[in-house]
Design a protein around this nucleic acid. Structure first.
Length: 917
RNA sequence: GCGGGUAUGGUGGAAUUGGUAGACACGUCAGACUUAGGAUCUGAUGCUUUGCAGCGUGGGGGUUCGAGUCCCUUUACCCGUACCA
């Protein structure tokens, strides 16, 4: 009987669908397990062979867990809001909802062919109003809460208002944009607008002015990668840095908890490290410097208070709020000139032009509180407005940037730490003894830092402070295809819509670009206002909004009364295994953790961390093929002969190349230009060159899974994707190797049949066959637990090689169950042919019986003189004397024994051979 | 610059975690069956050498009876991040 994969795969996919095989419900009688994939953005290009890698791995794990008796939640959905659909809409006028729907249909078709065990009844789409109702709901909750730093928890804004009513800011310790101080009387004296403005300083979702790349001609904010050389990439219009009112999420409030939470997560160290760096905690001191002839004190942040005696100047960021007050009349022109220069440059450019020293003197002087010396205050864009206080104390002797600046402007450099030569560069290391530093002299750096912290606090110059690099997330986009904000403006005061009015649906419009006045596309909607006539917010939420809590929605996707019911959340809790790409390390995976912690604080979810274990699948790269055209001709020369000609390398579609051999006819038909191509062959073949590159259309190396499934079947695709290499490693796709896996499945299939009849026998298996079976079971189980799917596929192949043509049910039946997570279609078919009525999905996963392994051989560590010396696998049929003889004759042992015989060789069946001398 | 990772045959990759390097698969070669083979099966296949033998896990050094694995050093590539005070 032929292995007709096409027929049996579509048959079972159909049956699974009809029978609801993958539908799951809460079942308190069984332990739950939640396996989640990062849901895809359904792009117009469809899936290529690299996309399903993670889905296949998670599907194998889900099926395995299910067969182990777990109630497995394994859902899928679509991250459907997003820029590409909108860009396409601006160009073509097609509504993004239409193209998105079309793309989703295409994705679903492709996914269905691979045989996943998704419970599609739980599908979510972020662009569905029933779904984004809960995105809006969470936003309203964030708007209505602030972060109490003392309780380390989000609390209702009403509590903050009550506190202000009682004592003003006295005793309030809340996460905020800037530290405010006012009394209860001052608070009570504020009008409604002032109060709201004050509260925005504390809300977890708030509006504030931030610097953005603004393109007046395009009428929109641009991301850094959309700007080049101060011009917009599209259109080439000037882009300026502009302060704009934007919605933000106060993720910084959760910085410490997000940092601490990492320790308990089963994520890769590299991923945790990326998040740690992103959060960027640093412990230092806040210090105030008096400014000569000026009322205020300049606040800076430093991690090196020990070097304060070496401060010879100060620098503030160009955006610092004191730039104007600190600038003296005679420096005004120069400062304005400098500000104009920096304004033109985007943040990215500032970064790209690394270490190009620039700056300007304000004319003002600060006073070093420890030396009493007057030090000049400069403005320079190497100081970032967004970090710390936007102002620094400069210690040129011990900071390379300050050093470069001091050299450039001829400022004084005073060494205060011994150990380096500062004639050519600064000495940044945190070791050495302090010099030129008054009471710190003689201390080493670490001691000095501690002493200085105390001294600064004692003298009332400042205090210890922890700073984070993490910044609040800008949450609004001047775009159409996103969630509308459930916010209206009453007399310009941002006012939340009542929850009962959610979802606030995206209005239908036909032109998706910004308006001529530079308003976001939603300004084009007719009547974009509340029923009582208040205007609604016109920007929409960014891409990460909809993906921040989707894993919760899967638990209870049809609930109209809550994001997730208490019951569902109590049962499913959090994601046990999350599989997805590392590119979301600082985006989605940060926002989701923030979002979840917030909901946790409010008591809506029972776990603080959403993703317990996380696996990052590697990228599948493309393997491109090349042909070599002799320059100036239409003649193509085979790889081995190309050095004899002057050639031009041309990408050729990998789908018309097999084992690097070009299909000449297909090549001529591929492109009109090549219709009359001539070839210079080697041994009658045209051999192509190849290279590993990103899989992309322009390299003609995209392999479509539909094509592979058509040729080899879904089971082969699934197993081959796993066989390619370690899951977490990037590796090239090479269709050439797929035959090996396909052959394996065909061989496995053939074992069951003699002609068209089932040929499985009930003969008793031999010890050897049982050993092979159980070793395979052990290996495969172990490998699945370790996500080492490539070696488990190899284990199946080894097993088949060892079994030869064993057709015994006692061996084959467990193998079918063992294989089913990897190749569900063929396994299901064989399972039924073996006489089972139920699905192989519910067949208990085979368990290794150790006795079949240990009864034949032992693996012993060998102790010589109490030290582990070598291991050897001994067959149990060997007597202790034989083992002894073997040990003694081994070269290693002989070296040790120096010719003498050991006194005793102890053979303990089970563990250890102890050799006594 | 900083942080993380990788390096093994012609190719993708194994290696029980310090114990016979190259499992498994591709490719290649040879053979069988075939009108045919991009089907199936069998065998060979790290390199050098006719052979004996020697050399082999990016390079150099070290620890050890024994190193792909541990330590030091160095090179190349990949990823993340970037003036974070």
């Amino acid at each position: 009987m032929e292995y007709n994969f096409k027929e049996l795969e579509s048959k079972w996919q159909q049956r699974w669908k009809e029978n609801g095989t993958y539908h799951v419900e809460i079942d308190p009688a069984r332990p739950k397990y939640y396996v989640l994939d990062m849901f895809p953005y359904p792009s117009g290009a469809g899936l290529h062979v690299g996309h399903p890698l993670g889905y296949i791995a998670s599907d194998i794990y889900s099926r395995y867990k299910r067969q182990c008796g777990f109630n497995v939640l394994h859902p899928m959905g679509y991250d459907a809001f997003g820029l590409p659909a909108e860009q396409y809409a601006i160009q073509t006028g097609q509504h993004p909802a239409v193209t998105t729907e079309r793309n989703i249909t295409r994705y679903r078709e492709q996914l269905d062919k691979i045989g996943f065990s998704f419970d599609w009844d739980r599908e979510v789409r972020t662009c569905d109003p029933k779904y984004y109702k809960w995105t809006q709901w969470a936003f309203l909750k964030m708007f209505a809460h602030y972060y109490d730093r003392r309780l380390q928890k989000a609390r209702p804004v009403e509590e903050l208002v009550a506190a202000f009513d009682r004592n003003g800011t006295e005793g309030v310790d809340a996460a905020c944009t800037s530290e405010l101080h006012f009394t209860a009387d001052e608070w009570r004296a504020m009008n409604e607008r002032e109060r709201e403005q004050t509260l925005q300083n504390y809300r977890l979702a708030f509006r504030a002015d931030t610097m953005v790349n603004w393109c007046p001609q395009l009428g929109t904010v641009l991301a850094n990668d959309e700007v080049k050389d101060g011009l917009s990439v599209r259109g080439g219009y000037p882009v300026v840095q502009k302060r704009m009112k934007q919605w933000l999420l106060r993720v910084t409030a959760y910085a410490q908890r997000m940092l601490d939470g990492l320790d308990a997560l089963e994520w890769s160290d590299s991923l945790k490290e990326i998040q740690r760096n992103w959060i960027g905690r640093s412990v230092g001191a806040q210090v105030f410097f008096d400014v000569k002839g000026f009322g205020g004190k300049l606040e800076i942040f430093t991690t090196r208070p020990d070097t304060i005696f070496g401060v010879t100047f100060m620098v503030i960021a160009p955006e610092h709020e004191w730039v104007n007050p600190l600038t003296t009349p005679e420096n005004k022109a120069a400062v304005e000139d400098y500000l104009e220069q920096t304004k033109k440059r985007s943040e990215r450019e500032r970064i790209a032009e690394t270490r190009r020293v620039s700056g300007v003197f304000t004319g003002s002087y600060a006073v070093n509180p420890f030396t009493g010396r007057e030090i000049p205050i400069y403005i320079s864009d190497y100081v970032l407005a967004g970090y710390g206080t936007g102002a620094i104390m400069a210690v040129p002797a011990h900071d390379s940037r300050d050093y470069a600046f001091a050299r450039h402007f001829g400022l004084e450099i005073i060494p205060v730490v011994e150990g380096g030569d500062i004639s050519k560069e600064s000495y940044d290391a945190k070791e050495g003894r302090l010099i030129n530093s008054g009471f710190l002299n003689g201390l080493d750096v670490k001691e000095a830092i501690g002493v200085m912290f105390d001294e600064v606090e004692k003298r009332g110059l400042g205090k210890r402070l922890v700073n984070y690099r993490l910044r609040d997330a800008i949450f609004s986009r001047q775009r159409y295809w996103g969630e509308p904000f459930p916010i209206c403006y009453k007399n310009d005061i941002a006012t939340p819509l009542p929850e009962t009015e959610l979802p606030l649906e995206l209005p239908s419009i036909s032109d998706f670009g910004p308006t001529e006045e530079g308003e976001p596309p939603l300004a084009r909607a007719e009547k974009w206002e509340t029923a009582d006539g208040y205007p609604l917010e016109r920007s929409t939420m960014p891409g990460f909004a909809g993906s921040s809590a989707y894993y919760l929605r899967y638990m209870d996707p049809h609930n109209d009364h809550a994001l997730v019911s208490r019951e569902a959340d109590d049962y499913w809790r959090s994601v046990d295994l999350y599989v997805g790409g590392i590119e979301h390390a600082t985006g989605h995976l940060m926002y989701s953790r923030f979002w979840n912690m917030f909901l946790y604080d409010l008591g809506y979810v029972c776990e603080a961390e959403p993703f317990k274990k996380l696996i990052n699948q590697g990228m599948i790269q493309g393997r491109s093929n090349f042909v070599y055209r002799v320059v100036g001709t239409n003649t193509f020369v085979s790889l081995g002969l190309k050095d004899r000609y002057e050639t031009q390398e041309i990408h050729v579609d990998v789908n018309i190349v097999r084992n690097d051999q070009l299909d000449l006819e297909a090549f001529r038909a591929w492109h009109p230009e090549f219709a009359d191509a001539e070839f210079i062959l080697e041994e009658g073949k045209y051999i192509c060159g190849w290279a590993i590159e990103k899989m992309s259309k322009s390299m003609y190396n995209v392999v479509n899974p539909d094509y592979i499934i058509e040729q080899y079947g879904a089971d082969t695709l699934r197993m081959y994707e796993m066989f390619l290499g370690p899951l977490e490693q990037s590796k090239p796709w090479d269709t050439n190797g797929i035959d090996g896996v396909h052959k394996f499945l065909k061989r496995f299939w053939r074992l069951f049949f003699e002609g068209d009849a089932l040929a499985v026998t009930d003969d008793a298996p031999t010890e050897r066959e049982l050993k092979t079976l159980h070793r395979t079971i052990r290996k495969v189980r172990e490998d699945i637990e370790n996500f080492s799917f490539n070696t488990s596929v190899a284990a199946f192949m080894i097993c088949l090689n060892e079994l030869g043509d064993c057709r015994k049910r006692a061996i084959l039946e467990p193998l079918v169950a063992l294989l089913s997570p990897f190749a569900p279609h063929i396994s299901e078919e064989l399972w039924h042919r073996l006489g089972h009525a139920d699905s192989v999905c519910d067949a208990a996963y085979p368990v290794c019986e150790e006795r079949y392994l240990v009864e034949q051989t032992f693996e012993y560590p060998v102790m010589i003189n109490g030290k582990l010396r070598f291991k050897q696998e001994y067959d149990l049929s060997m007597t202790p004397d034989q083992i002894k003889a073997d040990v003694v004759t081994r070269p290693v042992a002989q070296k040790w024994l120096d010719g003498k015989a050991p006194k005793k060789v102890i053979v303990v069946p089970g563990k250890i051979i102890n050799i006594v001398f």
